[in-house]
């Protein structure tokens, strides 16, 4: 579902996932805290460049950006009208404020810049490696497990969903706008939850039988190579420049 891009080959694919995680994390912090448009636009460009280097196909990229931007669209419906400040113009009885528009623009740029970086990370790294990298970076075990199992069982739940869907289909179910349809969907969601819960229980039992004590061990060895050091330094410098531009108000 999400991993189909992880087998491509690009410079970024070959980098150590630990380095990538750290960079994405630092980048996100700086972008989230930044306020100046110079910095934000810079981060957006930077994100685009990284995505291009990771050779993410345009179609996949757009597919992944749409959900985030749908959310942002909702912000645009409210923020320009509800934020106090200098009035730009009126839309009927509603005043659009300058600060509101700026605020919404900032959020749009920030989220897209961060999403680009995240897409580059996820698209260039198998999910399992990300999990193990998180583990090696001493991120709490519970978060790593949550991440790992969420990913693994999205597939299982999705398949369960397909099975249920087929079973109602072969009995002639056609969705309409009526109570029968809603009821059927409600049953489906309910069944999905209960079945997932049961499965989780059985999987846990199976893990216990194989001596699970709360640790996941990795068979992979990560190694930090020259490439990693060079790109890490480069990225750090870029992030620091962004930070300096923001807080020292240069340019």
């Amino acid at each position: 579902m999400f991993e189909e891009l992880a087998n491509n080959d690009s410079f970024i694919h070959g980098l150590d996932p630990r380095g990538k995680l750290i960079i994405v994390f630092l980048f996100s912090i700086v972008v989230a805290a930044a306020d100046r448009f110079q910095v934000l636009l810079g981060s957006l460009t930077f994100g685009l460049l990284i995505v291009l280097t990771a050779k993410v196909p345009a179609r996949e990229l757009i597919k992944r950006l749409i959900p985030v931007n749908m959310l942002i669209l909702f912000l645009w419906l409210f923020l320009p009208f509800t934020f106090g400040g200098e009035t730009l113009f009126f839309m009927g009885p509603l005043a659009v404020t300058r600060e509101g528009v700026f605020y919404a623009t900032r959020i749009s740029i920030k989220s897209n810049a961060m999403m680009l970086m995240l897409i580059a990370l996820v698209a260039s790294t198998p999910i399992f490696s990300i999990g193990h990298a998180m583990h090696q970076l001493k991120i709490p075990k519970k978060i790593v497990h949550l991440f790992f199992f969420t990913y693994r069982y999205i597939h299982a739940i999705y398949r369960e969903y397909l099975r249920l869907k087929n079973s109602i289909k072969i009995r002639g179910f056609i969705p309409k706008t009526d109570l029968h349809t809603y009821k059927t969907y409600a049953y489906m969601v309910g069944m999905l939850l209960v079945r997932s819960f049961d499965r989780a229980h059985r999987v846990h039992n199976a893990m216990l039988c194989r001596g699970f004590k709360g640790d996941l061990y990795s068979l992979k060895k990560f190694s930090f190579k020259t490439n990693d050091i060079v790109s890490m330094v480069f990225m750090m410098v870029m992030i620091v420049i962004m930070g300096v531009m923001e807080w020292a108000q240069i340019i």
Binding site: I127, F128, R152, R199, M207
Partner: peptide, 8 residues
Amino acid sequence: DDQLFSPT
């Protein structure tokens, strides 16, 4: 399916 949970 209950027993296998790792990706590979």
